[in-house]
Amino acid sequence: MTIAGGIILIMLGAILTWAVEFDIAGLDINVVGVILMLGGLAGLLFGIYRISVARRAVAPTTTIIEDPVTQRRVYEERRPTDPPLV
């Protein structure tokens, strides 16, 4: 579930809980709304957690290049999402 899906479930649950005023035999609309809001909150928190884990998983790679003429070391850090060098 994405963050947008969680927000949509929270909004739908809030509408069913506080804005709808009809009764269905054997079904409480307010309880269904609260369940949808809790499910949307769980989905929202899971989506935020998944994004934070994915951002931490991308680690830069370090390349050390030694120039034989000047005896210098050049450190280059690249991420997997950087465009390739030509």
Rank of each mutant, 00 (worst) to 15 (best):
L41H: 00
S52N: 14
V53F: 03
I24T: 08
R73I: 04
L38C: 06
T63S: 11
D28M: 05
I29D: 08
L27M: 15
E66K: 15
I24D: 02
I15T: 04
V31T: 14
P80H: 00
Y49H: 14
E66I: 14
I15E: 10
I51R: 04
V74F: 15
A25P: 03
T61V: 10
M11A: 13
R72V: 11
A14D: 12
A42C: 01
F22H: 10
L12N: 10
V69W: 08
G26F: 00
D28Y: 09
V34S: 11
E76R: 15
A59H: 11
I48M: 10
P60N: 04
G40C: 02
D28L: 05
Y49A: 14
G43R: 00
T70Q: 08
R78A: 07
R72D: 06
R79M: 11
R78I: 02
T63G: 01
P80N: 00
V74S: 13
L16G: 06
T62R: 15
A57Y: 00
G47S: 01
G13L: 02
V32A: 05
L27T: 13
V69N: 13
N30S: 15
A25V: 13
L27Y: 10
N30F: 14
A57Q: 12
A14W: 04
R78S: 09
V20I: 11
S52C: 07
Y49K: 12
D67I: 07
I48F: 05
S52R: 12
V31W: 05
G47E: 04
N30D: 15
D67E: 13
W18T: 13
V53N: 07
F22C: 08
G26A: 00
V58Q: 07
A54E: 12
V53D: 12
I24A: 06
R78G: 02
T63E: 09
V32Q: 04
Q71T: 14
D23P: 02
R72T: 08
M37V: 04
P80C: 00
T70S: 11
G33R: 08
L16K: 13
T70M: 09
T62H: 11
R50H: 02
Y75C: 03
N30E: 15
R78M: 03
N30L: 09
I35G: 05
I24V: 13
G13Y: 03
I35D: 05
G33D: 09
L44W: 05
R56E: 07
F46K: 05
L45T: 08
F22G: 11
A42G: 05
G33H: 07
E76Y: 15
V34M: 13
I29H: 11
T63I: 12
R78F: 00
V20H: 02
G40S: 03
G39A: 08
R56W: 09
G33C: 07
T62L: 09
A19H: 07
L16T: 05
A57V: 01
V34W: 12
D23F: 11
R50P: 01
A14S: 14
A54M: 02
R72Y: 09
A42Y: 03
E76G: 12
V20W: 06
R50N: 06
V53R: 10
G47W: 00
R55E: 06
G33Y: 07
G13D: 05
